[in-house]
Design a protein around this nucleic acid. Structure first.
Lengths: 216, 216
DNA sequence: TAGATTGTTAATCGATTAACAATC
DNA sequence: TAGATTGTTAATCGATTAACAATC
């Protein structure tokens, strides 16, 4: 099989490869190659081949890759042959958007419960779910065997909720709060911060020609 | 000033530094140092100092950094001394969440218009905005001097809208659609894909002890 | 077989870390 | 001055790219 443990940065690209393979499959394509995959992702063909080689040899010399086969292999490697139950904490605007986001279920993740601490929100609808009291967090995690959580609570509440999630057995947190969560090594955290992304891009926007009025 | 052009990966960390400095300021702190900043971000003190050194020398030998001063410098470097007008395309659940997201305006970005192509959505409210017909995209971009856009439209529409944005003068796109946008070199794109992030983490979740029932 | 593309090795490039002289 | 922490240089580490033998 694989020669060396795959670096995390390589693992992070596998979902992109999977996305392109799904596309190709929808387009009715049966085979592809490292150059096409690279082209669609803005990566070099060498990188595609190198990345895949950490996990095995999935191609055919001279003929490229079978789209369906490579897709299945990536799904297996990423542990996506099952549907993962996920809980969502936070039923504000963002929580509602996430509760209604169809791509989760289409790609192997099912939100099984939505929580909030606000009495005005508890009992209301969020997507197909009734918002539950966050005090029942541990109970639901345990009952449903949840190990993945999405955190969409205010900054001030994030660390405390994260502590409870980890304590209840959660091992992966998709964190929308703009704080660095303190978690044990065995727990993975991925942060999503649109403000940081905008600020990153703003660096490259010099003020030149950003002039609203030039119509005198 | 700076010795060499800062790598993009370094620029991407500056918003995190800024976030911590804002926090420290709120806590009433007046000075800090590379070790504390690193500690709060999970980075080494050496990396903090190296990163900052690309832009200048902001510290005092033996005494660390003045929180307010370093914050101002980072705001200047990131072009955040102005409020950037931003347009939001897409008024679905996600668009609504973004239209109501307070952290944008708190951090230098003001959504000035929201667009959709769905006649049922045009004219309805999204946050403080009335949803406009996407056909008026170019007009509004031009009138308001917009160079930053947030794209929250379905996958199928993303590339076409991006083309129009770029054509109208947009130079930075925060892209929530799960596609790689094709844009000219002078346009920056940042992708946000929560599904890819969950899939990345799923790699590390072996099936062990993910058992819902153990209560017999 | 000839042609094509993989999988892998070695070379290059870039980012992080360690160490320390500079200096307040 | 003695103590502390920066800014910078050099060493290390890791990721990407180039090149090509393997092979279908």
């Amino acid at each position: 099989m694989a020669k060396k443990e795959a670096p995390d940065i390589v693992v992070g690209r596998l979902p992109l490869y999977l996305r392109v393979l799904n596309q190709l499959l929808e387009e009715g394509r049966t085979t592809t190659n490292s150059q096409e995959l690279g082209g669609r992702l803005g990566l070099s063909s060498a990188q595609i081949r190198k990345d895949l080689s950490y996990f095995g040899g999935f191609g055919k010399y001279g003929a490229g890759y079978d789209v369906a086969y490579l897709r299945e292999q990536l799904r297996r490697i990423l542990n996506l042959e099952q549907v993962w139950p996920v809980i969502l904490v936070g039923a504000g605007y963002l929580g509602h958007a996430l509760a209604n986001y169809q791509r989760f279920i289409e790609n192997g993740f099912e939100i099984v419960a939505v929580f909030d601490s606000d009495p005005n929100k508890i009992g209301t609808q969020a997507g197909i779910h009734v918002v539950l009291d966050v005090k029942d967090l541990e109970k639901v995690i345990d009952e449903k065997g949840v190990v993945i959580a999405i955190l969409a609570v205010p900054m001030q509440a994030a660390q405390k909720v994260a502590d409870r999630l980890v304590n209840a057995g959660v091992r992966a947190i998709l964190n929308y709060a703009p704080v660095r969560l303190n978690v044990p090594d065995h727990v993975k955290v991925q942060d999503i911060d649109p403000v940081a992304r905008l600020q990153h891009m703003a660096f490259y926007l010099s003020d030149a020609e950003v002039n609203p009025e030039e119509n005198t």
